[in-house]
Simulated assay, not measured.
Amino acid sequence: MRSTGTYAISTTLGESVQAFVPHPLPPAKPTLAPECYMEANRVAELALAHLSGVSGLVPSVDWLLYSAIRKEALLTSQIEGTQATLADLFDEEAGFTVSNIDDVEEVTNYLRAFRLVHDNLRDPGGLPLSVRLLSDAHRLLLDGARGSGKQPGELRRSQNWIGGTRPGNAVFVPPPPERVPALLADLERFIHDASQALPPLVKTALAHLQFETIHPFLDGNGRIGRLLIAALLEHWGLLPEPLMYLSGYLKQHQAEYYRRLSSVRTDGDWEGWVAFFLEGVAKAALDAERNIVVIASLLAADRRRLLASPKAGPASYRLFELLPMMPRFTIEQVRQKLGTSFPTATAAVKMLEDLGIVAELTGQKKNRSYSYQPYIALLTG
């Protein structure tokens, strides 16, 4: 059996436990055999290429990014147990009352962390993909949320564990805290080592698992580890825009996800993990491609209905173009976005309502709220 790490004694809460310390990447003795991943990697890379191509069906890639990034934020948070929905997120952004505000705050914090990493990688003067950048993202992730007392932005200084009520009955005990900085430095070197012959997607799979094994923070490791996947896709130019939400696949196969991670540590089964990961990328890219086609069809059909209406005017056209990034709204928000008068904004909303494109939610005469419901239904379906 291939050895993937060693054990070190770590004492915490008055008991000594065996903490797992992973070997540096890439896997060795034996190394990953190309025949184990070549075909799956080809299929996954092709799926990503198709996804990149189909994004041109929609007039603005920002429309697609708005929904894709929010779905990733939502699904990665749901893996950790949050109950927020996409509609909750849209409501919160529109300023509507949301009942489970703590869960929504966790999702919006992930969005902020995601944007920070994305913007730095796009900015020539920004931080490279590094421990420092992930720590900055972690600070935003836990800002004001339930984990705010768990050293946001700082590597852990105490022993953590996964599963169980204490280290002694844990499912997995990550490395002792004093080993974490060096392990992360090794991981950072692996990411930036251009001499590695492994395909980028395989390297992404290995890096994600290594990060999860190190578990460098007291809280939020799963979400930052999945954010690392998106960052690596960007870093290696595998997807020009973050249009794929892999957390949907990982949530759907959550038990297998955790089992595959564990099997590497216990049995050295890197091949099983890489195969699972590559299949996930291929399926997630295909799902994202299908969603883009369906959304593009809805937007095109609704636009045709609007353009065919003799009563439609410039304000209603401009409002329609805002809907994919403002699916829940009030007339006052429309007035501000369009920079127009309240009566003009009201007339634009009424035009789209009469055509059945948007619907009023409250049934009230005043303080009305509106929704682009067919669009939201597609995103949440």
Rank of each mutant, 00 (worst) to 15 (best):
G5K: 13
T6P: 02
I9T: 05
T11S: 11
V17T: 09
V21R: 09
P22S: 14
H23W: 10
P26V: 07
A28C: 03
T31R: 06
L32A: 12
L32S: 11
A40T: 06
N41S: 14
R42W: 09
E45T: 13
E45P: 00
L46F: 00
A47H: 14
H50Y: 05
H50M: 01
L51Y: 08
S52V: 00
V54I: 14
V54T: 07
S55R: 12
W63E: 01
L65A: 08
A68G: 05
K71A: 06
D88C: 07
D102G: 04
E106M: 13
E106P: 11
T108L: 15
Y110F: 15
R112Y: 02
R115H: 11
L116S: 10
V117L: 10
D119V: 02
D123Y: 07
D123P: 08
P124M: 13
G126I: 02
V131W: 00
L140W: 00
A145K: 03
G149M: 02
R157S: 11
R157M: 00
T165F: 03
P167C: 14
V171Y: 09
P176N: 11
R179I: 02
I191D: 04
S195F: 00
S195E: 11
L206T: 00
H208N: 15
F217G: 08
R223G: 12
R226C: 07
L233V: 02
L233S: 02
L250W: 03
Y258T: 05
D267M: 14
V274Q: 08
V274K: 08
F276S: 05
A282Q: 14
N291R: 15
L298K: 07
A301W: 03
R304T: 03
P310A: 05
E321W: 09
P324N: 07
M325S: 13
M326S: 03
M326K: 06
F329N: 02
T330Y: 02
V334R: 04
T340M: 03
F342W: 08
P343T: 08
A345D: 10
T346G: 12
V349F: 04
K350I: 01
E360R: 11
L361I: 13
N367H: 11
S369P: 00
Y370V: 04
S371Q: 12
Q373A: 14
